[in-house]
Structure formats: C-alpha cells, structure tokens
C-alpha cells in the first residue's frame, strides 16, 4: 500500500528511517519547520535550516525513492521572540519559490501567550497573502484544549481560506470544533504523549474520513515514525477495506497538500467507486 507521511521531521532522523519507510510503502513525506530543542538566536540560523529542509533533505529522501516536501515557520516554542520572528518572516517569500516548499508551518501555539498569538496571526497572514497552505501546531498535554480554543479564536478574527489550513495534533477533546469550523485536522501518533494508533482509528470511525490527516511522530524526542503503519494495520484489522485505508493514509494528504500545485502526487483508487465508507 502506498502511504504519505504528512508530518515528518527528517533532519532529526537517520537514513535508516527512509529505508524502512520506503520498504513499508511510504512514497512521500512533508517536513514542517520544527524546534531544534533550544531557542535559536539569529535569523540566519533559520535561513540555513530552511535551506536544509528545502534543498538538501529532498536529495537524501530521493536516494530511497521518497519525495520530500517542506514548510517554513518559526516554531511556536520560539515565537515568543517577536522581533526575531518578524525578521524570519521576511525571508519566507524566497522559500515559497522553492519547488518543494508547500506553505507555512508548523506555526501555532505552545503556551498561548500574547506574543505567540501575534506570531501565529503574522504567519497565517503571510501565508494567505502568498496563496500558501498553513499547518498549525496545537499544544501538547494539559495545554491542548485551551491552546486549540485560542487557535480557533485567532483564526476566526482573520480572513482565511479554511480549507487550506490544517490544525494538527487534535485529540478526542479538540477534534470536533476544528472540523465544525471547516478546517482540516491531523492526528499525531506518539508512543506515549499524544494520540495512539487505536484512538486515531476510533476517531476515524466516529468522525468519518473527510478532512482528516494521520501522521506519526518523528522528531528528535521519544517518537516512532512507524506508529503510522501501526495505525494502518489497526484500521485494516477492524475490517476497513484497502481502498478506505488508501483514502485516509494516501489520498487525503494528496487532497490537502495537492492544493499547492507543487505537490503533484494524485489520489489512487484500487477498488471500484461506490464502496461503502466503512465495512460492517
């Protein structure tokens, strides 16, 4: 089965990941800009990081037959520094012109401070002005519900195309308001700290598959890129067909990311159309 991994921090991973992902059917990954584990001080550091994910990393992935796309942003954990954020934002148009950059992300909130909210608004504003997609990080653990509400409040005050915005890391208590508001949502599968593969399938069964992306955790912390494949196995074990799995784990990323014409992988169909959404 062909799989797209829509949220993958490749620079924190070894080539062994690429090799195993390729062997398990992953055909493309998309790499949002991430926190480095410490707060960067200089705009130039971000620029080199963006060069790494938009120029070098596609060549590393290509050695395993995997397409690599990326996003640019000042991660919410660093967005408290507004002057630095503004300086980095000025460089975005240069990267929007790169052949594999899909948009702005992951912006969003960490502690939901006024500075973080201002930075989120500035990120979304520049994305909309340049016709880019947006990937929004929501806080982890005890900050998630409040932070997600705040994200929705910030977006509600802006003139945005909701179908071009993906609110990530939703869980059972945050998925509904995001979907109801018309945004795409993402589940991020972590070994311990966030959504599990089984809970992700529960939410797919409860809310359907429209406007939902599933991605594994894959960064420099405790994470496991193959929670995505674990989720696919759980989905199939519950009786959902191969085509239904393709819709979630390949075609939905194509539909969202493909709103940017640089993402040219098309949805697949291996079973006749008109099959029921879910098998009994």
């Amino acid at each position: 089965m062909q799989i797209i991994q829509p949220h993958y921090h490749a620079i924190a991973r070894t080539a062994q990941d690429y090799e195993r992902m390729a062997m398990s059917g992953v055909v493309a990954v998309a790499e949002p800009a991430f926190w480095a584990g410490f707060d960067r001080k200089y705009p130039e550091t971000f620029i080199d990081y963006f060069r790494q994910i938009s120029e070098f990393e596609p060549t590393r992935a290509a050695q395993y037959g995997i397409r690599h796309f990326s996003w640019v942003a000042v991660n919410p954990k660093e967005a408290e520094n507004l002057s630095l954020t503004r300086e980095v934002l000025e460089t975005f148009p240069e990267f929007f012109a790169k052949p594999t950059v899909l948009g702005v992300g992951e912006t969003g909130l960490h502690k939901s401070t006024p500075n973080e909210c201002a930075a989120l608004e500035a990120h979304v504003e520049i994305a909309m002005r340049h016709g880019q997609l947006v990937l929004i990080h929501t806080p982890h653990l005890s900050d998630k519900a409040r932070g997600t509400r705040r994200v929705l409040e910030v977006l509600a005050g802006m003139n945005v195309d909701r179908e071009r915005i993906w609110i990530d890391h939703v869980e059972e208590h945050t998925i509904k308001p995001c979907l109801d508001a018309g945004y795409w949502v993402g589940f991020t599968l972590y070994p311990v700290t966030q959504c599990s593969p089984k809970r992700a399938v529960d939410m797919l069964e409860r809310y359907g598959t429209d406007r939902i992306l599933v991605n594994s955790s894959a960064d420099w912390g405790p994470s496991d890129p193959f929670t995505l494949q674990e989720c696919i196995l759980e989905f199939r074990r519950r009786g959902h067909s191969l085509q239904e799995a393709i819709e979630v784990f390949h075609n939905n990323p194509c539909r969202f990311l493909g709103q940017n014409p640089k993402f040219d992988i098309r949805p697949l169909r291996v079973e006749p159309a008109g099959e029921p959404a879910f098998a009994d």
Binding site: V192, S196, R199
Partner: peptide, 9 residues
C-alpha cells in the same frame, strides 16, 4: 497513556 487507552477501549 495507559488510562487513556482503557477509556478508549
């Protein structure tokens, strides 16, 4: 995590 898994079950 384990309690959430039980709740989900």
């Amino acid at each position: 995590h384990m309690l959430l898994e039980i709740a989900a079950l």
